[in-house]
Design a protein around this nucleic acid. Structure first.
Length: 492
RNA sequence: GGGUCGUUAACUCAGUUGGUAGAGUACCUGCCUUUUAAGCAGAGAGUCGUUGGUUCGAGUCCAACACGACCCA
């Protein structure tokens, strides 16, 4: 696709010819009077009266059918696509000569009244035209469009231009986030921003990206979670806070993982994880209703019913009823370890019964949870920031939400006992194994904050990308991230 | 990290047993004032991902590498 390409050379030649005629190839003095979508009758009503008067629209030329002294073309702006009819007799010889040098892909403006063609299509009868931006590269073919996945991700601008369903997906993504903001704001949550660059990357178990601040002579990490900062705000007296922003994890890429991804976290003082289950059901089903028009949706051919209430299992129940474990196995550490071994699960020597159960759950149960399902009673061993259950200290007051076999949310009543928190973080550090990139040091300031007293609270994280995948029926996380990470192209 | 598949014109794709590369769209020229995958006629366009190897001869066979997709870890 270098500059010696024939089509590009021809377009550059046309651009030069237009320039020689005194046409500004990159004019910025035209103000559209109308959005294209506003000119088109709703529901394709073929009887609807048309707007009267002279319309002035601008957009990208997406299709062009020339007939010598007249032509039809389609121009597209963000709101829609409309046909334009242009006749030499209407616009004059000079303007028509310029029009003949306009290519598919150029951005142009047209003015004129609306009419219907004999096939009934609402069309602008051009009285004048302006070239606004010359395009030097050809658009993908009109019928098959752009389907090559690599090009679609690398050149998302072309993907967005020619694939309306891609524009639709990203509009829905924006809408999902807006609705969540509204939902939480209406419940008195305050949207806050906490550091992306952290000296200690806490709040989750993941490898962070490392960076360096020159003036401070300080290594910093891109955050893997905002959790510990948001809970500091609870200490400070902000009783309902949320943040929707990027987290960064220095791990592999897949259809479900991008190294930077968008996370909602919210915290509510004096609430418990039970209340957050209700809030989550209400919020996600409402967002689905608003975005998809129904709570019964389809994901990759699979029916998913998002209407509350949602199923709830404790982890032990799920392991028995869905994973097929017997009650005896569930309490027999050696039997659990043997079962894990049979499923090829590699366990650290220090792994306790809670860790083994969690691994078995991920292996045997997770992918079978298609309709929304809350899994509660997570082992304390795998929940270092969650409050222990009052009756049973081996489990926490925590849930995770699974839909279509994927973890969508993780929430718990918060641990606010500073001494217990210190012990649990220390245990994590001791057991981190050889991987020192995880949990580099104890976050003493967080513990100090807890010592001031954090109100009892519950908090939750929801993966926005995965929620967007679900509600836009997208098979890959890359389909809901505008510019997903790929290896750089070779520079020619 | 491992496995499978893919990479050919701007786009979407063919390419047989190894014998100097094809189509549609796009682009260019001509005709054409209600078309919409407009039509008709004609022309041009390729480092077959990269680098090696086998061979008289490689898009095709072999190897390594690059990029991507999917699956597994």
């Amino acid at each position: 696709m270098d500059e010696s390409n024939q089509i590009i050379a021809q377009r550059r030649q046309k651009a030069k010819e237009l320039d020689d005629l005194g046409v500004n190839l990159y004019a910025n003095d035209f103000k559209p009077g109308h959005r294209i979508g506003d000119l088109l009758p709703a529901d394709n009503d073929s009887e609807a009266p048309l707007h009267a008067g002279i319309m002035a629209v601008a957009g990208r030329v997406m299709a062009l059918r020339k007939f010598g002294k007249a032509a039809f073309l389609h121009i597209q702006d963000e709101s829609g696509r409309i046909q334009v009819h242009i006749k030499r007799d209407e616009v004059g010889d000079e303007a028509y000569a310029i029009f003949k040098k306009i290519d598919i892909g150029d951005i142009a403006a047209f003015t004129g009244p609306l009419f219907r063609t004999k096939t009934g299509e609402v069309t602008i009868q051009a009285l004048s035209l302006r070239l606004l931006t010359k395009s030097l590269r050809p658009l993908p073919e009109k019928f098959h469009g752009l389907t090559d996945i690599e090009t679609r991700y690398r050149q998302r601008y072309v993907d967005l231009m020619v694939n309306p369903e891609v524009r639709d997906t990203f509009r829905k993504r924006v809408e999902i986030i807006r609705l969540i903001r509204d939902f939480l704001s209406n419940r008195g949550f305050l949207e806050v921003e906490t550091p992306m660059m952290q000296a200690i990357a806490g709040g989750a178990t993941a490898k962070p990206f490392k960076t360096h601040h020159n003036a401070l002579g300080l290594d910093l990490y891109l955050r893997i979670a905002p959790e510990l900062y948001l809970k500091r705000l609870l200490v400070g007296g902000l009783e309902r806070v949320f943040e929707i922003n990027r987290n960064f994890r220095n791990e592999g890429l897949s259809t479900r993982h991008n190294p930077e991804f968008t996370m909602l976290e919210f915290y509510q003082a004096y609430a418990t994880y039970d209340e957050l289950m209700e809030l989550t059901e209400e919020m996600i089903s409402w967002v689905a209703m608003e975005v998809c028009g129904s709570m019964q949706i389809s994901y990759q051919g699979q029916a998913v019913d998002l209407a509350p209430p949602w199923r709830r299992y404790t982890m032990d129940e799920a392991l028995q009823q869905i994973g097929g474990l017997s009650p005896e196995t569930l309490t027999d550490f050696n039997a659990l370890k043997a079962l894990a071994d049979r499923h090829g699960i590699a366990l650290q020597p220090q792994a306790g019964i809670g860790k083994v159960k969690t691994e078995l759950f991920e292996c045997l149960v997770e992918e079978k949870l298609i309709d929304p399902t809350f899994i509660t009673a997570y082992p304390t061993e795998v929940s270092p920031l969650a409050r222990k259950n009052e009756e049973n200290h081996e489990i926490t007051d925590r849930f995770e939400l699974f839909i279509t076999g994927r973890e969508i949310a993780n929430a718990f009543s918060e641990l606010n006992d500073p001494d217990d928190q210190r012990r649990r973080l220390m245990k994590q550090i001791e057991e981190r194994g050889e991987d020192e990139e995880i949990f580099p040091v104890l976050d003493e300031d967080y513990l100090r904050a807890l010592e001031y007293g954090m109100p009892p609270a519950a908090g939750e994280g929801i993966g926005i990308d995965r929620l967007a995948m679900l509600l836009t029926d997208s098979p890959s996380i890359r389909d809901v991230i505008l510019f997903p990470h790929l290896r750089p192209e070779k520079q020619s």
